[in-house]
Amino acid sequence: MTEVAVVAFAQAPNVRRTHGTTNGVEMLVPIFDEVYTRTGLSKADIGFWCSGSSDYLAGRAFSFISAVDAIGAFPPIHESHVEMDAAWALYEAWLKIRMGEVDTALVYGFGKSSAGDLRRVLSLQLDPYTVAPLWPDSVSIAALQARLGLESGRWTEKDLAEVAARSRRDATGNPRAQFGGETDVAALLDADPVADPLRRHDIAPVTDGAAVIVLASAERARDLADRPAVIGGIEHRIDTPSLGARDLTTSPSTRLAGEAVGTDGVEVAELHAPFTHQELIVRDELGLGDAVRINPSGGTLTGNPMFSAGLARIGEAAQRILDGEATRTLGHATSGPALQQNLVTVLERG
């Protein structure tokens, strides 16, 4: 089967609030331009398009349909859409190239989380009969997960603050991050919890954003990028939605996806962890040791654009290879409450 590579990645600035529409066109048009310029491709050269977004984020049905205006989708295009983070749109595009149907694909995700009350909207992901009618918000669900780890000794509050401090420090080198800066772990721990046991620094911000990745067959990729990032493996799995029926301090789906991909020799990993403790869970399930550089972009804790944050992790991981800084990197994406669904991809220098 055909090998597939990432040849370009771009993302909109991660910001608390844009003035744009929920269709994402204002965020997408400039980043499409960016990847066209970088690859020399035009829209007519793209064999397949796939996007990820959510109607509930926008508050209306079919919000993704207007987003195709950003493409200029006439003459008609070969296109699909997943109601998931765009990391899964990348998976669908990977299939299309792998099966030889097309040799280029453009994948994008977008979301304007600021349009609604994100943590309340996300409660609609829970069981609609016995859980969602109580409106448990996404931050409170994560806080229940965090406490289980704290009380079982899986992690400490200091461990969590260290994840936050490292993320903020690394984000200072990322011009697209929502915020960053040098912070002191002790100072972080002095703050009062906002959703006990979680403090502000444990929780990813609310972010408007978008991201785009161009994929090509390995053969075509050589013409489009100096150092294409070849997808060595990409796998995803899901766990039971029943929060009370699984050990929330683990993520079996992450472990299964990681084992299927093979994570040995990874130098850099971009992990999609909207809460500090979730980074520790994912890292552990993927068997990433201390030598692995985690989230050099600052990660999701410094910018969490819903429905493109997972794609952006893959993009950041690929960028290390495109830039010649690494030879084997890992991108991870998550979806659903408490790390329910997870995707892992390993990228390699071609």
Binding site: L134, P136, S140, I141, L144
Partner: peptide
Amino acid sequence: VSWSWTADPLPGQPVQRPFAW
């Protein structure tokens, strides 16, 4: 088994004063 604290309940949540999930 586990709990988290909500200082400002959101609309629709079961208890409309500070409570624990």
